[in-house]
Amino acid sequence: MNTERELTELIRRYIDGTASAQDRDALQQTLRHKPSARRLFARYANIDTTLGGGSIILKEPMPTARPVRKRWLPWHPLTAAAAGLALGLFSASLVWGYVGPRAGAASSFWLPVVQGSFENPALPLNIGAAPSFGIWSADKSAVVQAENGITPADQSHMLRVIGSVGKNTRGRPALNGEFVQLIDMRPFKEQFADGCADLKCSAWFNAVADTADQNYTATLEVYAMQGDPSAVSPLVEGRSWLAREQIARSMKRIILDRDPAAWQASGVRVELPPETDFVAVTFRFTSAQAHMNTIPPEFPGHYVDFVRLALVCRARADRTELLPLDSD
């Protein structure tokens, strides 16, 4: 090999998985004899790993629009009623009420996550289907009452995550439990049109104290999306599509503590771009031993409850606030 350019191209092919056996031979011959090549290779791998690791936001944030109106119009009762009607389509038990203007204060209200507390066993879960409005697109799961020594975090039911409907990249049964629900933000456009609103999402996770020394993680993510949600693919590819097309997102992963007596809370917050048309709330469990064939491809007892989504409008004056009296 003659030049550093040739070396970096070989490293690139290796890291991207497109190298031939001859490429590998040439590269390893250089790595064997040149410490500087080993340093370059390790740095390239380090950069690649970090870019793919999710700790750095790669997509450029959408520019935040500044308020263009001179004053805030109060949210007209008719608008609120229309929003309430729209919400009613998603959740029959939502009851909304008004409070008066609270000048100068930040305000917030819950957004309609259907089955956020999984209280209605009769409402279906859309197993393996494309994410859509008003229903959880789900991996294998069931709405259950207290079991396995775990009582619901909220009210009397919770969601038990059983396993995946998909396979991993090596064709083995995947051990992710993945759930997505889309929330239509168009009825609320006026509330975040000036770009001064955040989206807050929270969920509670729990799991049985397993005996196999496995580590499990629970990940909560929220995506702000623009455009038509009918383009979303079925569940397995659906999240990739969301991740690719999102205009803002926030993600948090926690390691489950193996203590079924205590639920673990997780929460994310993201600035909501004014262009947002809909939001995707997604959570998943992942097993650290998902690749091993020694365990059955099912979670021994993993639960989620009390998934909540709120729109938080930062300190603005002279507006009427809509607050939920009850939900789910």
Partner: peptide, 20 residues
Amino acid sequence: VRTLVPLREDAREVMQEVAV
């Protein structure tokens, strides 16, 4: 781990074993 194994997915797979 990524420096040692060929593919990004391989590194994640090894890391699961490492964590355990």
